[in-house]
Every structure is written in C-alpha cells, then in structure tokens.
C-alpha cells in the first residue's frame, strides 16, 4: 500500500525507530545540547563524551518522528570513535546527501547513513533528518544553548 514510500521509510529506519540505539541520559557527558524542531515538535537532547578531540561516546533522549529518531540513533553509532573534525566532515556529507542539488556526497564516508538519502525527495521532511546533525554541530562548537532547525 505504501510502495511509493519505500525509499523514504527503509526497514533500517523502522528498526531504529522501534529500537533506538544509545537512547539514554549520559550523566558524565562533557557536552549536552538540546535540539528542537518547532514545526513538528521534535525534541532531542544529545550527550557527548569527548576525550582530547575524539568522541568517545554519544547518546540521546527525546521524542520525534521515525525519520528524526532513526537519524539521531544512526548518528550516535557512526560518530563514536571519530574525531571532532571527522564528525564535522560527516555532517557536511550528510547535509549534501539530504539537501544537495546532485548526488555528490561521498557514499563511502556516509556508510549506513545512506538509508536517509530518501528524504531529499521529501522537502517537508529534510529537517527531521538533519535535526540530529545540527544539534551535533552545535555541541561540537560547544554551544550549550538549545538549537532549533527553524
């Protein structure tokens, strides 16, 4: 019945929505930033543990749609062990993948985040996918206030 949506709602997304990874409060976090999308009410808190310039651990709390939950869940997995510079580069690639005019992002670097590429066909949903990354960006820039994608 929802055949048209198979590119957007891939099974991986349903899986992460049902069982989000790293879904917990991190008491010992070095960075804690809130992200909010006022359009749909998606709200998340991202926690990072940083050692030197390496992201040792990432977790999150909050509620959102399947796209935004899967996006932040996948993000916390993929940034673990990356340097801050590497994470910023991933953000750039992810941004390119979800909003870019042509598909010039680095597929290899993006890895399993590629399941979110489908949002580019759904402009109303791009912000759901990018909220996590904007929040990460703010956390890496050490902006402790809440950020908003609007």
């Amino acid at each position: 019945m929802f055949d048209d949506l198979r590119d957007l709602y891939q099974e991986v997304i349903f899986d992460h929505n049902r069982n989000p990874r790293n879904f917990r409060v991190m008491e010992s976090a070095d960075r804690k930033v809130e992200g909010f999308n006022p359009l749909c009410g998606d709200r998340l808190t991202l926690f990072l543990k940083i050692n030197g310039d390496v992201i040792e651990e990432a977790s999150f709390q909050g509620s959102g749609c399947a796209i935004s939950t899967a996006s932040v869940s996948l993000m916390t997995e993929i940034i673990k062990g990356k340097t801050e510079a590497e994470a910023e580069e991933l953000f750039k690639q992810f941004h390119e993948m979800t909003t870019g005019k042509d598909e010039h992002f680095n597929l290899e670097a993006i890895g399993k985040l590629a399941v979110l590429a489908g949002v580019r066909e759904y402009p109303a949903r791009v912000k759901c996918a990018t909220l996590a990354w904007h929040t990460l960006d703010a956390a890496l820039k050490n902006e402790q206030q809440s950020i908003s994608t609007e």
Binding site: F2, L39, C40, S63, A66, T69, R125
Partner: peptide, 22 residues
C-alpha cells in the same frame, strides 16, 4: 508510537491531505 509527521507523510502517499503538527 507513531509520530504525526510520519502519519502525514504516509497518508500523503495515498493522496490524503491531513495536518500534522501543533
């Protein structure tokens, strides 16, 4: 367990326009 935004997108694929939001 299903966010209104997902409901909105899914129904749209069936030609149904509803509002999802605050």
């Amino acid at each position: 367990k299903i966010h209104p935004h997902d409901i909105g997108t899914m129904l749209d694929s069936l030609g149904i326009a509803i509002r999802a939001g605050h």
